[in-house]
Structure formats: structure tokens, C-alpha cells
Computed example of a mutant assay.
Amino acid sequence: MKRESVREQAMFASWGIALIATAGSLFFSEVLKYIPCDLCWYQRILMYPLVILLGVASAKKDYQMSLYGLILSVIGGLISLYHYSIQKIPFLHELGDACGIVPCNTDYINWLGFITIPFLALVAFTLIAILQFLVLKSAKGK
């Protein structure tokens, strides 16, 4: 019974994180009118389907879908880490200049000197990946 509860809560929390991240990215682009750079679009491409995938998996208690959630979140996290590195590591900063219409090294937000949009995406992808790993791990102990 306990493992089932852990899986349910981890899957639901993953869905909630993906939903908040998606809503946040839409707020930045549609309300604040920040134009996403190319790397932001790749992160969106990996985050948005997680809302549907994890929502359906949570509702149906289909924990096998955690593997897909884990894969999408790890890839998205790696892109976010690269994007954040372009913004914050001086010798990589030039890589963001040729990213597209909006340079990938643009900091639309820079809260507390380190919280940027790619950082927020990295946190979301990391949390989702950890939770999906826990779901998969608890399913194997069945």
C-alpha cells in the first residue's frame, strides 16, 4: 500500500510541476511578451507534452509511462543546463549570440543574480526526473 501511495504522489507532483512550468513559460511569452530563443523552444517542446503524458499517467495510475517522462525530462534538463551555462559562464557567453532571432544568452529575468528562465526550466526538469525515477524504482520493488 505504501509504494502505491508513493507512486501516486510522485506522479501527481510531476504533473503539477510540468503544469506550473508550462503556465510560467506561457506567462513569460504571452503576457510579458518575452520572445523565446531557439533553446527555449526546445525546452518547451520537451516540457509541454509532459503535462499531458504525466496527467494521463497520474489519472490512470499507469506508472509504466514514467520511463517516457524520465527520458523527456533528462533531455530537457540537459538542454536547460547548456542554456543556463551559455548565460552564466563567461567563456560560453558568445555561443548564445548566433542562436536565432533572440540571442540565447539574453537574460529576460535575473532574480537574485542567478535565477533565469533556463534555471527555472532546469529545476522543473530535474524535479520531474527525480520523481519519475522514484516511481520507476518503486515499481521495480513490487
Rank of each mutant, 00 (worst) to 15 (best):
D38C: 14
A13G: 03
E8F: 09
M11A: 15
C40K: 12
T22F: 03
A139T: 01
F133Y: 15
A23T: 13
L131A: 02
L70F: 11
K88N: 10
I89M: 02
S5G: 04
L26I: 04
I86D: 05
K61C: 01
G76K: 01
A18Q: 09
V123F: 08
W15L: 11
S66M: 09
I45R: 13
A129M: 00
L53N: 02
V31W: 10
D38L: 14
I130G: 00
F27N: 14
F28E: 09
N105D: 13
F125H: 12
G141Y: 13
D107V: 05
P118V: 03
Y63L: 05
G113Y: 09
I130V: 09
L70I: 09
I89A: 01
E30R: 15
I86S: 04
A121G: 13
V74R: 02
G77P: 05
V51A: 06
T22K: 03
S58V: 09
I130L: 02
C37M: 12
Q132F: 03
I75M: 09
D107T: 12
I109E: 01
Q9I: 15
K137G: 00
C37W: 10
C104D: 07
S14K: 08
W111C: 01
Y42D: 08
W15A: 12
C99T: 04
H93I: 10
A18W: 05
G76L: 00
P90W: 08
F114C: 03
I35F: 13
F125R: 09
G16T: 08
L46Q: 12
I117W: 11
A21W: 07
P36R: 14
L134E: 04
K60V: 15
A23F: 14
S73Q: 01
K137S: 00
I89G: 00
P90T: 14
L50I: 06
P103E: 10
A59L: 15
G24K: 12
A124V: 02
W15I: 10
L53Q: 01
L122H: 07
L54D: 04
A18T: 08
L54F: 09
Q87A: 06
I52H: 10
K142G: 03
I79F: 00
F119V: 08
